[in-house]
């Protein structure tokens, strides 16, 4: 894979990790001529140690763990897909792995993009925009108080 393609796959996998069970399930249910799926690694939960940095930008330290689920599948087309996502969600992980495999099939990729990745991207963007706008409304706008009875002292 070229660097460009790796970056694109990384971005696709990030969206698949963020997709809801419903988004994944409806895209898979509606998929035409679904290939057979073989579980290379049955979806299973585990932990990752989440690291922070001392001072935010220094040497790393172990902050605490998070639950993750991972899965790997092989489609009858021969494509292998992987999924790694936060939480305990075997069904989501398996479907995300299936779509990672489909995405690697160049003929299926446009459909993965339009039917699944684009709507997930749009939902995440809308959620992020809403959060940013709500936070922006709580931004403090300072103003200088001028005393009415002592104009000279105020500057």
């Amino acid at each position: 894979m070229t660097k460009n393609e790796t970056d694109e796959r990384r971005a696709a996998m990030a969206l698949l990790a963020a997709a809801t069970a419903r988004e994944l399930d409806s895209a898979w249910t509606a998929w035409p001529e679904r290939p057979a799926v073989e579980d290379l690694r049955k979806a299973a939960c585990g932990l990752v140690m989440v690291r922070g940095r001392i001072g935010g930008d220094g040497a790393p330290f172990n902050l605490g763990e998070a639950t993750v689920t991972r899965a790997a599948v092989r489609l009858s087309t021969g494509h292998i897909g992987h999924a790694y996502l936060l939480g305990r969600a075997p069904e989501r992980a398996r479907l995300a792995a299936i779509f990672d495999a489909l995405w690697q099939d160049v003929s299926a990729r446009p459909r993965v993009d339009t039917e699944l990745l684009a709507p997930v991207r749009a939902r995440l963007a809308a959620e992020a925009a809403k959060a940013v706008a709500e936070a922006a409304a709580t931004r403090v706008e300072f103003f200088t108080v001028t005393r009415g009875d002592n104009q000279e002292a105020a500057s």
Partner: peptide, 15 residues
């Protein structure tokens, strides 16, 4: 947490 396997450590968070 003691019942689950550790799969690895993350990249340090970028705050």
């Amino acid at each position: 947490r003691a019942t689950l396997p550790r799969l690895g450590a993350t990249e340090p968070l970028d705050t």
